[in-house]
């Protein structure tokens, strides 16, 4: 049997070699805690993220748009489930994770506390919000914890359609009537900075993420990912003929990337604290869905028990 020092050495050498850590392997308690927090927050974000888009399913402008949006929202539910089970491999229970979400103890991405006011918002969410999420998730495919990495690989495969369907909506509107183009620009104006916040606070204010980099849970920093996102998105906006709402946005030849304004971090912390435009509504909707479903869970459980008894009696 190995002693504590050996176990820790073994763990560290795994990280150095870019090997994966698997559920039954020894790991530092803080690594486990960090992962449970990060993966479950990620899962909550997928589930809560269904709500702003779900808002438009019944009002989608065509049958095709409705089918696409339904499929996308269903995928997000699936992503939540992959991630919950990944967190459960670390010893957290599903009921405990959901409980933390429902009581407001657990956090989810601040972006989902903004409202989807027009159909163009569905375009902007797919293009920008899923686009930003993909950037983060592509990086997480190489995360050091095996089950998290595997969930990310599945998720990334599904995500690319999400971003493309959003961009397609933006194309329709941007190349449509004057009013449609205005609607697209308005959505970009409202979603740009909240999307930039999705990568988290600047590296200098993000002590958690430094440790996460050491553990190879994260492989790129918040600022690196944000820069990458801006660099890739500017041209896509130009193609649409839309203007990114940032006067400081300009190409910097020296760094081969764009300079841009920081989002308003005060707003970010305020939304995280629960004071965003939709925090209350999101949490209420989630709690209502959960309690409305209670009788279904109870009935399914009773039915399963009864069948077991029948087998024993037979």
């Amino acid at each position: 049997m190995s002693n504590a020092v050996d176990l820790e050495k073994n763990f560290n050498s795994k990280l150095e070699k870019n090997d994966f850590v698997e559920p039954k392997d020894w790991m530092p308690e803080n690594y486990r805690k960090h992962l449970i927090r990060q993966i479950s927050q990620h899962a909550h974000s997928e589930i809560i993220g269904m709500l702003p888009e779900g808002n438009w399913i019944s009002r989608a402008p065509s049958l095709r748009a409705k089918m696409v949006l339904l499929a996308k929202v269903q995928d997000e539910g699936g992503h939540g489930l992959y991630l919950y089970t990944a967190a459960e491999t670390l010893g957290a229970s599903r009921d405990e994770l959901l409980g933390a979400l429902h009581t407001g103890k657990a956090k989810y991405s601040s972006i989902f506390n903004y409202p989807t006011l027009t159909w163009a918002d569905i375009g902007a969410v797919g293009w920008l919000v899923d686009g930003a999420a993909i950037m983060n998730q592509v990086m997480l495919q190489r995360t050091s914890y095996g089950p998290y990495s595997r969930a990310m690989i599945r998720i990334c495969k599904e995500e690319s359609f999400h971003q493309r369907q959003g961009y397609e909506i933006m194309c329709h509107l941007s190349f449509g009537t004057e009013a449609q183009k205005e609607m697209a620009q308005d959505a970009l104006n409202r979603w740009w900075f909240p999307t930039m916040m999705m990568f988290g606070p600047p590296d200098k204010d993000s002590p958690n993420s430094e440790q996460a980099m050491k553990w190879r849970i994260k492989r790129e920093t918040n600022d690196e990912l944000r820069q990458k996102f801006v660099d890739r998105t500017v041209e896509q906006a130009e193609f649409l003929g839309l203007t990114i709402p940032d006067k400081n946005l300009k190409w910097n030849e020296a760094k081969k990337g764009y300079d841009f304004s920081e989002p308003n971090w005060e707003e970010f912390y305020n939304v995280i604290k629960g004071n965003g435009p939709c925090n209350k509504e999101r949490l209420e909707a989630r709690n209502k869905a959960h309690s409305d479903g209670a009788w279904v869970r109870e009935a399914a459980m009773a039915y399963a028990e009864k069948k077991k008894e029948n087998i024993l009696a037979a």
Partner: peptide, 12 residues
């Protein structure tokens, strides 16, 4: 193996 899930019985 592709992942896991919760369900009450085998059909579900």
């Amino acid at each position: 193996h592709c992942g896991s899930l919760h369900a009450y019985d085998k059909e579900m």
